[in-house]
Design a protein around this nucleic acid. Structure first.
Length: 137
DNA sequence: GCCAACGTTGGC
DNA sequence: GCCAACGTTGGC
């Protein structure tokens, strides 16, 4: 199983809204960046991802799971843009802020730090564990 | 609100 | 295939 991190601006799609979706999940539409899309194409059912609030909050607030594999993005005109769907699985008992991630030397290689604009990114298993620990899981 | 980083588009 | 222009993201 692989790990990922997805970003969302909470004033557009928040963790509360994601949780309210429950098992119905939410299609991660609107990604128009090849790197981010490629990461979604690589996702398998059951893969886990951190749910990160960008711009407002700037913290990892929860964990989602891949519920549907990549499929054409219904909001795109052509089928090269694909998206997966996510269901919420857990809250971060203690949200992990970007500042906290940046100030942990173990996490210095994370794309969240080095490629801050990438909206769908992989997370190394060790980094996943470390952040879970920081978040109280 | 500013601006740096960076991805995309389109002319040549 | 290069590169300038432009648009967007996202931290500060």
């Amino acid at each position: 199983m692989a790990y990922w991190l997805i970003k969302s601006e909470p004033n557009v799609w928040s963790w509360a809204q994601q949780k309210a979706r429950g098992q119905q999940g939410e299609l991660w539409t609107g990604v128009r960046n090849y790197s981010a899309r490629n990461n979604m194409l690589a996702m398998q059912l059951g893969d886990k991802a951190f749910f990160y609030h960008s711009n407002i909050g700037k913290e990892i607030v929860g964990i989602v799971e891949v519920a549907q594999l990549a499929q054409p993005d219904p909001t795109a005109e052509d089928t090269r843009w694909q998206c997966v769907s996510f269901v919420a699985v857990a809250d971060m008992p203690c949200p992990v802020s970007l500042t906290a991630v940046k100030s942990n030397p173990k996490l210095a290689c994370m794309p969240l730090v080095t490629h801050s604009r990438l909206s769908v990114q992989p997370v190394a298993p060790m980094d996943w564990e470390e952040i879970c620990k920081m978040g109280g899981l």
